[in-house]
Write a protein that binds this DNA or RNA. Structure first.
Length: 297
DNA sequence: CATCCGTGGGC
DNA sequence: TGCCCAAGGAT
């Protein structure tokens, strides 16, 4: 083990919390009266989709389904349709399934308990902690890609966090958590916001950073990333692109769609069939009558 | 643990 | 112009 101690995380609390008080974005799911369902919907939508693109879909969603029971009462296909072009539409299906579970198991109220949240479809370690912390003010390590990057730089002195989340990331975030519950909850959202606005992946705004004088990475001279190369995800020509095209047609249609309309989406029949079968297997598309398909009812 | 799963905007 | 990235989860 190294003799050099990590920077004391507690020394970061005050500057980060103070920075957040002055710089937090106004977002609808952060309004004091937003409620846990609003937080939950936003967290699902924000899984891999930027805030700017989430906002309009979020507003429409909350107007239409202000409570979990409102969503659960509708067909899952309506959730997929309202998901619009946020991407990864399985999230819409999972959010609908989670709403159904909330009605059936929790009286229609988003549960407060971390384990109960984790048991919901589409809720993993991060989202469970985020809901418990942001909506209910509990003390949890909320470890997303922003937080992992902030800690990688400020505490570990690395330009970028590991490619995939590790147990070490989680332990580090737990150890950095302020002791008392309300402060821990503010710390969680503040560190995420710092990563989103200042300690960004590509061009960090270190001049604006409240902890630049304590940041291990800055103090080390901001050394460049030297880890394994990140695999750039290709998209053109993948099944994902084909699935996206097929689902776009089905979302736009008010009802069932003839198969020949779907055939026009993609020239390669083998890939097209595979993509369609995959959508059906995922529950995103239902076969209907003969040679017709629709969003799940 | 690696891979799959959409979409679009910024640099 | 591409390439990188964006509040992950499930398998």
């Amino acid at each position: 083990m190294s003799d050099s101690p990590l920077p004391l995380a507690s020394a970061l609390h005050t500057p980060v919390l103070s920075w957040y008080a002055d710089n937090a974005r106004t977002l609808p799911w952060r309004e004091p009266d937003a409620g846990a369902w609003a937080v939950m919907v936003s967290e699902f939508m924000l899984q891999q989709t930027p805030v700017a693109r989430v906002l309009p879909a979020y507003e429409a969603w909350m107007r239409r389904w202000p409570k979990p029971g409102d969503l659960a009462a509708e067909a899952p296909g309506e959730a997929v349709r309202a998901w619009d072009r946020l991407g990864y539409p399985r999230r819409a299906l999972r959010l609908h399934a989670a709403a159904t579970a909330i009605v059936e198991l929790h009286g229609g109220e988003v549960p407060r308990d971390h384990a109960a949240l984790l048991a919901l479809p589409g809720v993993g370690t991060y989202t469970a902690a985020a809901i418990a912390s942001f909506a209910y003010g509990q003390r949890h390590a909320v470890v997303d890609t922003n937080v992992r990057r902030v800690f990688a730089r400020a505490l570990a002195g690395l330009a970028q966090p590991s490619i995939s989340p590790t147990a070490a990331d989680q332990r580090l975030a737990v150890s950095a958590l302020p002791d008392d519950e309300p402060t821990a909850a503010r710390w969680a959202v503040a560190t995420m916001e710092l990563g989103a606005l200042v300690c960004t992946a590509r061009t960090p705004r270190c001049a604006e950073c409240p902890i630049r004088s304590q940041c291990a990475w800055v103090l080390a001279g901001s050394p460049p990333y030297d880890g394994p190369p990140r695999k750039g995800q290709t998209y053109e020509g993948t099944d994902r692109q084909v699935r996206g095209r097929l689902l776009a047609v089905l979302r736009a249609a008010p009802g069932p769609v003839a198969k020949n309309a779907l055939d026009a989406c993609w020239p390669d029949q083998v890939q097209r069939e595979r993509a369609l079968d995959g959508l059906v297997a995922d529950g995103l598309v239902d076969p209907f009558a003969d040679n017709q398909y629709q969003l799940p009812q």
